[in-house]
Nucleic acid binder design. Sequence first.
DNA 1: CTCTAAATGCGAACGATTCTCATTAACCTT
DNA 2: AAGGTTAATGAGAATCGTTCGCATTTAGAG
Lengths: 137, 137
Amino acid sequence: METKDLKQAGLKATLPRIKILSLMEENTVRHVSAEDVYKTLLESGEDLSLATVYRVLTQFEQAGLVTRHHFEGGHSVFELNEGGHHDHILCVKCGRVDEFVDAVIEERQQKIAAEKGYDMTDHSLYIFGICQACQKL
Amino acid sequence: METKDLKQAGLKATLPRIKILSLMEENTVRHVSAEDVYKTLLESGEDLSLATVYRVLTQFEQAGLVTRHHFEGGHSVFELNEGGHHDHILCVKCGRVDEFVDAVIEERQQKIAAEKGYDMTDHSLYIFGICQACQKL
DNA sequence: CTCTAAATGCGAACGATTCTCATTAACCTT
DNA sequence: AAGGTTAATGAGAATCGTTCGCATTTAGAG
Ligand SMILES: [Mn+2]
Ligand SMILES: [Mn+2]
Ligand SMILES: [Zn+2]
Ligand SMILES: [Zn+2]
């Protein structure tokens, strides 16, 4: 239950937070913008503010519940943290998103950071291309 | 001479374009924002509009003269195209930027795209960390 | 049930980028 | 070299995602 998850993350179990978290726990959505969350909840009859959606998603990020991605186009996309780190491959035609993990790449990044004298904290990797479906159009 | 480069790229050799291109050809700047370009040129006594800087940089990008990077923080950073493709490692403390190319990573990305059925067009990879200098603070 | 700090809603503010439109400048033609 | 055509520019308004400020509400401890 979301109330538990929230308290565990050190967050009060408020109505907006419960609604947003349960929406993100539905496996029908994996990569959503704040606007997506806002509109979906409005359509479900919930009444909340877009500013709150932004605030809550940022808190979720800080609490480690979600990850914020900077997909192209200026707007952020959020994803529930489950199943661990992974990178993304996106279709530039239709916006489809697939996920992958590559141990070799992960390891090489560590090596590069070390060579350059950096203490690596994070990385972001996006592959862009045209998905199978869009290639046939 | 910049006039030549511009014509070759199919662009009229206007004053703003010449100024911006020569600024970017100085090896004192490698990764600059539109704002950086604008302020630097103003300080050099040039008189031009920020809107023009944005327009020109976008045209340069389309003409293949520069590459636009989406470093974190919402704003774009531009870099003259010379020396070919490379990726970046950034210090999250001081903003330092280093460059690298890793053949293994490049190749793996191709493989991943192929496996997922994508026709890969591009990729973006940023490693974040703390640079040597900042580790000592 | 009460109280207090924290969370919310609303609209204003924000910062990077783009757009509109009147004015200016490139450069092709005489 | 001068003129005309058309694209480029300057100035500021507009846009868009996101954040802020502040009055109001609510969660949760006592
Ligand atoms: Mn994902
Ligand atoms: Mn670079
Ligand atoms: Zn597609
Ligand atoms: Zn540093």
